[in-house]
Amino acid sequence: MNGRNNMDNTVIKIRDAVVSYREDVALQGVSLEVRKGEFIGIIGPNGAGKTTLLTVINGLGKLVHGQAWVLGSLLNGRGGSNLRKRIGYVAQVENIDPRLPINVRETVMVGCYGRLGLFRRPTRAQWETVDKVLEMVGMAHLSQRPIGHLSGGEYQRAAIARALVQQPEILLLDEPTASIDKKAQGEILNLIQLIHKEYHMTTLFVTHDLRTLPSICQRLILMKDGRIWQQGSPESMLKEEVLSQLYEAPASVPTEIVPLQT
């Protein structure tokens, strides 16, 4: 019975996953289980397979070997869009065309479109939800601004708002604080932690920069060369000798990982 209880609580289960892009093997035999409500940090050097691991979870990365169950369904490379409706994804800031004809409120509403389905228009209640979430992430005053006119930090707030209106069961954050300034990084990290505290969504947070690791992390996964190299509690992993081996360069333990300010 104990095993069964474990099953019910497991939202992600990956067994021996291998993913390759042309000749490169991006993941070589990764196994991972994630329980409902966990906040997991995934760290490692560039090219370690962190982003690929996230794409396996949302069904966009194709397994050449191994199996993955996410939210109760076995991924088989097809019909992934139904799964993606239940998974929020925030990527790192990208360069976008400042002339793009879509504003903040509209781009946040896109989060609802998957669940809403084809041929149905957003309802007034959904627009109200969008406005409420914009308020929560501190973007209400920018709701009519074209997304191409946002700063990096504002753009990420909008991306997080979009993931929230999706009401996801899993939240995937792929370097959400890369290439934004330090102050905005702190604000975004704080927002992410507040959201986890409020909604307890299962969250996977990928970063190559140890200084942007939220303190709320319950488990740290260290990836290297397409494999999970080590994993454990942040206390046991954030040690100089472990990190130096991981990055193959002298690495210092961040003096403090980003605390939650309420």
């Binding site: 869009s81 409706k85 479109y113 669940r115 809403l116 084809l118």
Partner: peptide, 20 residues
């Protein structure tokens, strides 16, 4: 219309939220 707007403005995002 709503799917088209999402796809032409940010196709990656559209894909990630479960739009075909």
């Amino acid at each position: 219309y709503k799917e088209i707007q999402a796809v032409i403005c940010h196709r990656e995002v559209a894909l990630a939220v479960g739009i075909p």
